[in-house]
Computed example of a mutant assay.
Amino acid sequence: MLRTVAVLLVEDCAPFEFGVICEVFGIDRTEEGVPLVDFRVCGEHPGRPLSLSVGAQVVPDHGLDDLGKADLVAVPAARIRDDYPPAVLDALRQAAANGATLLSVCSGAFLLGAAGLLDGRPCTTHWAHTDELAERFPLADIDPDVLYVDDGNLVTSAGTAAGIDAALHLVRREVSAAAATTIARRMVVPPQRDGGQRQFIEQPIPSCEADSLQPVLELMLSELRTEHTVATLARRASMSERTFARRFVAETGTTPHRWLTTQRVLLARQLLEDTSLGVDQVAERSGFGSSALLRHHFRKVVGVPPADYRRTFCRSSA
C-alpha cells in the first residue's frame, strides 16, 4: 500500500517528469474514491531553490531524511551528469535498504545507477539514453524496447510520457485498478498503453554504406517486393552462398532474410505515417504481399499492430 510518496529533486530537474509524479501521487482525489497519499517533495537542502531544466526554480519543502520514511521514492528526469551529490546517493541507498520501492522516470535511472541500485536488475530509460546507461552501468540489465520495467521494488520507465504509464501501473499494483483508472480518466490518458517504446524510435530506411555488399543492399532496397534468396543474392555479389551469408552477417549484423524483413517493416511504417493507403495496399507495396504477414512482422519489429501505429503517428490529412 502506498501511504507515503517522496519525490527526489536534484539540480536541472525536468518539469514535465516532475509534474507527472505530482499529478499521479500528489493530488487529493479522496472525493473520487482514491486513497490520500502523504506526498513529499525532497531535496538535499530543504527550503533552498533548485533549478529546473527550463529556466525556472522549485523549492523542496522536505530533506533527504524523508526518503527513508517513504513507501515509494520517485526520481524524475534530470540532466545527466558525471557526479551526483554523495548525500543524495546515500539517501537513495538507505531508502532502498529500508524497503522503499524506487521509481525512475526517463533519465532519473542514471541517478539510481550512480547509487548502485541498477546492478543486476532489469531496467529501462529513454531509448536515446539506453546505450549511455549501459556504458555507465554495465551490470544493469537494460531493455530498450519497453515503456517501463517492474522489478518489484524497482520500477524504471522510458522517456517522458512513459512515466505516466509506470506511475499508473504502480497505483494499479499497490492501490487498485479502480484508483488507477480514476486518475487516468482525470488526466485524460489511457489507463494502460499497448506496445513499447520501439514504436517511438526514429528508424529511417537506411542508406547502404557497406562497401563490398553495397550494390546488393541497394538492389534489395529498390526491389523490396521481390523474394530475394541467398542463392540469387550470392550470384549478384559473385560469391558462393556460404561466403555471401557469412559476409552479410559480418557487415550488417543479421541474416539477409531478417535484414530484408526489417527494411520492409520500415517502409510499411513510413507508408502508414505518410499515406492513406489501406493496410492491404501497404502490405503489397512494402513487399509482404498480405496484410496478415505485414501484421505479424510489424508487431514483432515495432511492438504494436499497423492499425494502432497509424492511429498514433499518421500525418496524412486524408
Results as ranks from 00 to 15, higher is better:
Ala250Gln: 13
His62Leu: 10
Leu102Trp: 07
Ala234Trp: 02
Arg136Gln: 01
Asp38His: 11
Ala250Trp: 09
Leu133Trp: 02
Asp28Trp: 11
Phe39Glu: 03
Ala231Tyr: 11
Ala91Asn: 06
Gly287Gln: 05
Gly303Tyr: 06
Thr160Tyr: 13
Gln197Thr: 14
Ala245Asp: 15
Cys123Val: 10
Val265Ser: 01
Gln94Ser: 12
Gln192Trp: 15
Arg310Ile: 01
Asp151Pro: 00
Asp151Phe: 12
Arg172His: 13
Leu139Phe: 00
Ala283Glu: 02
Ser240Met: 09
Val175Ala: 14
Leu272Cys: 09
Asp12Asn: 14
Val24Trp: 03
Ala162Lys: 06
Met187Ser: 04
Ala178Met: 13
Ala177Pro: 00
Pro305Phe: 03
Thr30Val: 11
Gln203Ile: 11
Leu170Trp: 07
Asp61Met: 14
Glu227Trp: 05
Thr181Leu: 13
Arg295Leu: 08
Arg3Leu: 12
Val175Leu: 15
Thr261Ser: 02
Asp61Val: 13
Pro15Ile: 15
Ala178Ser: 15
Thr255Leu: 03
Val175Ser: 14
Ala56Trp: 15
Val216Pro: 04
Arg185Leu: 13
Thr4Cys: 12
Arg242Leu: 11
Asp194Val: 15
Pro85Ala: 04
Ala77His: 06
Ala167Asn: 02
Pro76Leu: 05
Gly287Lys: 03
Gly152His: 13
Glu273Gln: 12
Pro191Arg: 06
Gly163Glu: 04
Pro49Glu: 06
Arg93Met: 05
Thr312Asn: 09
Ala158Asp: 07
Arg121Ile: 10
Gly19Glu: 09
Val302Gly: 00
